[in-house]
Write a protein that binds this DNA or RNA. Sequence first.
DNA 1: CTCTACATGCAAATGATTTGCAACAAGACA
DNA 2: TGTCTTGTTGCAAATCATTTGCATGTAGAG
Lengths: 158, 158
Amino acid sequence: MDSEHRHEAGANQVPGQLKGFRMTRDRRIILQVLRESGIPLTAEDILERVNATMPDIALSTVYRTLDELVSRGSMQRTLLSNDGHAFFELVGHAHRHYMVCLGCHQMFPIRKCPVEDSVDSAAEDLGFEVTDHSLVLYGYCRHCRSGRQSPGSDQRIR
Amino acid sequence: MDSEHRHEAGANQVPGQLKGFRMTRDRRIILQVLRESGIPLTAEDILERVNATMPDIALSTVYRTLDELVSRGSMQRTLLSNDGHAFFELVGHAHRHYMVCLGCHQMFPIRKCPVEDSVDSAAEDLGFEVTDHSLVLYGYCRHCRSGRQSPGSDQRIR
DNA sequence: CTCTACATGCAAATGATTTGCAACAAGACA
DNA sequence: TGTCTTGTTGCAAATCATTTGCATGTAGAG
């Protein structure tokens, strides 16, 4: 082994650090699905959409790709449902905040954060330095509002 | 079977509705643990603390009690960590909002919601009727702020 | 004290996610 | 282009939190 002239996968690889990332066909498709989606997706959501384009990608590959991207910081994992599903979305495309409809169980992105500053300053009064926050609104979307009998007849998400 | 004079567990029991709830020794202890805790707990947290007082309660009993209370509306389930654990807290004691420290991974309750109205009205402009919301702040607590080398050296919770 | 619905323990079942392993392929370099 | 190394994939088995079936135990009304 030529120890003073070995191959380096990345430009500045540090021992014990992140390994090289290869842009494979599978990953390209997975990323495209995430780029095209306006809302966070679960691993199975992604597989479903990926297979519409290019079948025979394993679920474990989807999970591994997502993990990889999360640890590289370009993907975000958000827990929103109470049935144990994790949702993922690209950081660049992250809307950060969502409204979840308790009627149809769909998620609607909120473009701009309605709480930005008030939150941070309130917490900082308590000695807490805020670096991030998550906000989810629960309720009923335009469609479910109209056809709805009474609140509470639906099962809770949260 | 005496169908016109049968026992009714609760005062106003409706067929197909909630069944009777019995306050057993196990449940009393579980509830006490939750009452004494200032922060949401996982099922295993609860079992751990319960067993300090009264050993030999099964984990499945904890889960069943929590489910029971959630479906009765006196307990709240909140997903906060990304490692797949569900957190529970009594509704009466619910602070609703928390600060999670990325340094020591502790949770600190926020007494009053800093965003109440602004959130609701913003969403309602989009045709969404808000019935509830969840807010979590991430950052560093007073203690971790001082002894901290550089942000990012800790593993992310979310 | 009796009786019945509800609660519990245990072990097995679920369901999402992770991992071991052998086969494969991307990208650097000759 | 061919070789070589490291990263990637599929498959099946392993994990881990949570749920459930079933037989047994008990709270609480009468």
